[in-house]
Write a protein that binds this DNA or RNA. Sequence first.
DNA 1: GCTAAGTGTTGCAAAAAATGCAACACGCTA
DNA 2: TAGCGTGTTGCATTTTTTGCAACACTTAGC
Lengths: 296, 296
Amino acid sequence: MRHMLALKYIDAVAKAGSIRAAAEILAITPSALNRRILAVEEELGIEIFERHSLGVRLNSAGELFIQHIRSQMADLERVRSRIADLSGVRLGHVRIATTKEIGANLLPKLVQDYRTNFPGVTFAIETFARNEVERQLHNLDADIAIVFQPLRLADVHTLIHTQQEIHCLMSTAHPLAKRSALRLVDCLEYGAILPPRGDGVRELIEAAAVRKGLNCVPAVEADDATLVKNIASLNGGIAFSYAHADDNQGNGDLVRIPLHQGEVEPGFLFVGQLHKRTLPVAVSKFVEEMRKAIDQ
Amino acid sequence: MRHMLALKYIDAVAKAGSIRAAAEILAITPSALNRRILAVEEELGIEIFERHSLGVRLNSAGELFIQHIRSQMADLERVRSRIADLSGVRLGHVRIATTKEIGANLLPKLVQDYRTNFPGVTFAIETFARNEVERQLHNLDADIAIVFQPLRLADVHTLIHTQQEIHCLMSTAHPLAKRSALRLVDCLEYGAILPPRGDGVRELIEAAAVRKGLNCVPAVEADDATLVKNIASLNGGIAFSYAHADDNQGNGDLVRIPLHQGEVEPGFLFVGQLHKRTLPVAVSKFVEEMRKAIDQ
DNA sequence: GCTAAGTGTTGCAAAAAATGCAACACGCTA
DNA sequence: TAGCGTGTTGCATTTTTTGCAACACTTAGC
């Protein structure tokens, strides 16, 4: 490491106890080595070696300075080792910009699974209104964006584009709980628990209801995922969520049933990055794992 | 600090978020600055900055490296501050080679007094046989040597050369305790507490006894200073010590009385250093303080 | 006391590294 | 599309580092 050459030289002289002996080891001339030491002593404004006929010896200032040198060398090795880890997958930081619904329903499980395998990787997940998400990429404040509508900005490159079916979530005691697939008309009849207008799931359900001529009035309108699940498990109605949403909340009172094919159009999940940017290893790996999980 | 220039450059770029802006601040060309960054990145084997049209930004590796840089810069400032303290008296280390008797009897009080004023100064006191003490100077393992015989080696320079009278130490209840000065014959009659043969004080007492035709047989022969004092305070006899020996042991049962002028020849204390060696500031100051204490 | 061998240090020339100048490449905005 | 801001590169110049040869000092042996 050229930038630490002077420090490396001083360490070698301290160890050898002689400028000439150290110069042999370092394969440079004693003259050059002596000058480097004199230069650092001049920078520090004090001598760090006592000169004797049989060699040199660190003085008190030199003892302090050598500690600093060795500490810096050790710290640099540690940093280099951690930097090498970044080139692998063991260490890293993943910054995600997404919408509230995805943040609440889809990401927790994915992130948890990933961190089980790579505990050295940290995540920052920030939620925004849909039209703000891509701007985070542009501003370099996020590594990837995850949304339900197609990515629009010209400098955003799509990494993942996949369907997301809508599933029903209800109490095991619900009359429809034993069916293998449901119809939207039945769900609305027994009372639907829907997220607020503007939510992707709400839009898909409403579009299907219009298409089928059904009156889509929610029995309960709730945003918070935990609240939604608690209401459903108390047999308060049928909630809707994405096929890959997190349902590992230790909630054994809930059952998940798909709608019949074609009942509700699926949503599309998009994952994107800033065009031409090379993603850190950990981010790339996370995207890869996300794709696998979603493809199952 | 030239030897940390590359690190200083990287810190400036990270702060400015732009190579050109940082070059302005550093008063060098963007070209030179860019090359220094590229050089360090090559040394590390990984990029530490992401390049964008609006400037640069640290990547994960860069975040790790900048922490290292800032930590080392802070540490260097700390070390420089401590080095500056060495040029004053506040900080330092004093290495003393001496004999056992001086180590036990003379130095504790001197060192304690000095450290009361300069608590940042540390001491290493090592005791040797008389003929080994000066070799420690020669080997650079001690800053000063303190002995009772003249310094002999050609490369040892005498710093202090002073007489050390012998005083008597006894219980306040001793029959001779009220006298202002004592005679050796009386001391021997009441029982003398002497150190082992070979000790400087023992030799001076025995020489005087021979000169006066007195039979010098110790009532008690003891080496340990604390033991000697305890025996004396229990009225077990009269002990002898140097005028400047440490008697601040909270021992109010003891009184110190000088011998009559000429009763016992005084000892001579010598303090020396290696010829032509510049002593660290703290060592010089300690010698100065020692001289003052002894001259009183 | 002198010589040889070992040490650190210095004058000066040569080599290497750092820097500046000018231009290029790229992205963004009006 | 042109202009502006950014980072980067070829090449010349400057600065720093290094090597060569000699000097200065100390120590040990004769």
